[in-house]
């Protein structure tokens, strides 16, 4: 028996059905698989697959969650935002966090960066003016093998009230 599933992703609405037939989303499919393999949103990355590294983080109702351990079947009615949805689709303007990351070279290989930016967005949604300790805490579930952390913290601090980007 198939059932309908409506996904809201980056402001767009996608209609699917859940089931085992070709083109349907099986119950066991993760949100990360749906994003990358069905919708083509490959900004969110698959790394540890256990929710430990943060590379697959997306915003669900404004909060960062690990899409690799989230079932797509459970996303009915949720607002999902991926790294691709942060910028302004009409003007092509990036989110201030993305701008700050570019400005501060806050990445090296960039694999973990979408997840880190999502985690920062999640933090700023709840707390627009975090302390450095709060920033570090909020990013404690995002691992970077290229050691970009220092620049990341600098970039985040730069966009806070009183920071260089204002």
């Amino acid at each position: 028996m198939s059932r309908d599933l409506t996904l809201h992703i980056n402001g767009d609405t996608y209609e699917f059905t859940i089931g085992r037939r070709l083109g349907q989303i099986p119950e066991s499919e993760t949100l990360l698989e749906t994003l990358r393999e069905r919708i083509g949103l490959t900004g969110s990355k698959m790394s540890c697959g256990q929710g430990a590294c943060g590379c697959c983080a997306v915003l669900m109702d404004g909060k960062a969650v690990a899409s690799c351990i989230t079932l797509t079947a459970e996303c009915q009615g949720k607002e999902i935002v991926t790294i691709e949805g942060l910028g302004n689709p009409e003007t092509g303007e990036l989110d201030p966090i993305q701008e700050a990351f570019l400005e501060h070279n806050a990445f090296q290989c960039g694999f973990c960066t979408p997840g880190i930016i999502i985690a920062v967005k999640s933090l700023l949604n709840a707390n627009p003016n975090p302390t450095e300790a709060e920033i570090k805490e909020a990013l404690s579930g995002n691992y970077c093998r290229c050691i970009s952390h220092f620049q990341v913290i600098e970039a985040v601090k730069s966009i806070l009230k009183g920071g260089e980007a204002g």
Partner: peptide
């Protein structure tokens, strides 16, 4: 527990 990303779920 774990990390903020996990605790959000």
């Amino acid at each position: 527990v774990a990390s903020p990303i996990i605790r959000n779920t």
